[in-house]
Design a protein around this nucleic acid. Structure first.
Lengths: 132, 132
DNA sequence: CATTACCGCAACCCCAGAGTTGCACATCGA
DNA sequence: TCGATGTGCAACTCTGGGGTTGCGGTAATG
């Protein structure tokens, strides 16, 4: 009786709504969200490494260097593009991808700020514990 | 998705993601790996918010504020713990979780350094393009 | 010591997404 | 113009992990 399904509705539910909710599908996931999701996959990180290494690369050329099909690469590149981690530029019959440092850097700054915030709170709690 | 039974694709991708060739792999990379995976889930990010907000929290108390079962919370906390994003301290009959800013900050620094590296390469490529 | 919370383990369900194959379309070079 | 090459789209498979339920173990409280 410890787990009551009836109370499976709470104030923080709205935070979850943007992730995976049955009805509302894609209500603007914030950039950091997509960056983390993109970076969570090892193949996508490998792609970023390869593109950064070559400066520019096409899906076909990347498919040669990774043990997955071109279509899989294309899907991953679409995710990376949506996350703002790469840019796609069509040149003639091919599409050239390049890494985009600013999205990565922005997320890094966001994380760093959050870490500082946690630090601040922890320090405050420690002071209260000591004085109380 | 990390371990492929037919281990030939995921492994190669993993090798590439870890940086080519070097016997000594970046000690920061592996943690960053898990941090991305942990942060990729909206429920886990919500958990981090709640814990940071309260300073300390138990799985049961968190289950009240999130629309998922306690067991789900426990699993997520295990992931966050493995990623170094939270600490778990047993106090009597309960387990208290607290956020750990350093792992987050370390990953932020790693991302920032990577962004700088990309910037450097892009700048070099641009110079070549202009001079050529 | 009986009761009351918490926690841990295990089995199970379900679906998003990583990966595939196949083919049609567009563009370059000869 | 024709073949070669690179891309786009669609349907499909299948594993991982997020979620659940149920129950047994253990520490606090009266």
């Amino acid at each position: 009786m410890t787990e009551d399904p009836a109370r499976h509705r709470a104030d923080a539910a709205e935070d979850l709504a943007r992730g995976r909710g049955g009805a509302a599908e894609d209500p603007v996931r914030d950039p950091a969200d997509r960056v983390f999701g993109a970076l969570a996959d090892p193949t996508r990180r490998a792609l970023l490494d390869l593109i950064a290494e070559q400066g520019e690369a096409t899906a076909t050329s990347l498919a040669v260097r990774l043990p997955v099909s071109r279509q899989a690469i294309v899907k991953h590149l679409a995710v990376l593009d949506a996350a703002g981690l790469v840019t796609a530029a069509r040149v003639g019959r091919e599409v050239r991808y390049a890494v985009r440092p600013d999205a990565l850097d922005a997320t890094a700054r966001w994380m760093s700020a959050l870490a500082s915030e946690w630090d601040r709170r922890l320090a405050a709690l420690k002071r209260i514990a000591e004085s109380g």
